[in-house]
Amino acid sequence: MNIAIIKYNAGNVASVMYALDRIGAKYTWTDDEKVIQAADKVIFPGVGEASTAMAYLKEKKLDQLIPTLKQPVLATCIGMQLLCKHSEENDTDCMGVFDVNITRFQSNTLKIPHVGWNSIKSQGENDLMKGLNETEFVYFVHSFYAPVYQNTSAICDYIQPFSAMLQKDNFFAAQFHAEISGKVGQKIIQNFLDL
């Protein structure tokens, strides 16, 4: 199998690559449109800030390419947020695969960012949680979130319920870091590769 990890200016992707190594999957880290288009699976990872990341994707015209991909795409963390319509983080227009807006957590009592292991609950159709329990623990680090809406495939509760996972056609997204979420995260990545 031929996996493309999208290369852009959002954080380092070493943990994602090592997670794929542990599964024994081969991958290419690339921002080349042709290589991404030809891949069997595409992973869109990321840690970073929305507007800077979108500016880079636009410069490489990847913002045009990504929403048109037909193979399974897995977006994580900032990758997931960039697939939504708009992010409150520096008022950024995103790619709009998922018809939902990203907003910032607000709380006077709970800490922001949301850091650590929290439970997620599978919701409706969730192909990536096959073989897992309905509720599992995964590792989060984020200050912005996607509200629960019709394409939410797993819900997490912090300050209020929010989308831990999204699923629509060939697009799969996780707000948490599957690559460092222990055996559960490994199973989620494996399920994606098995699609």
């Binding site: 542990r22 690559e179 460092i180």
Partner: peptide
């Protein structure tokens, strides 16, 4: 460590 360990 990063190759072997699947937690942060």
């Amino acid at each position: 460590v990063a190759r072997q360990v699947n937690i942060p």
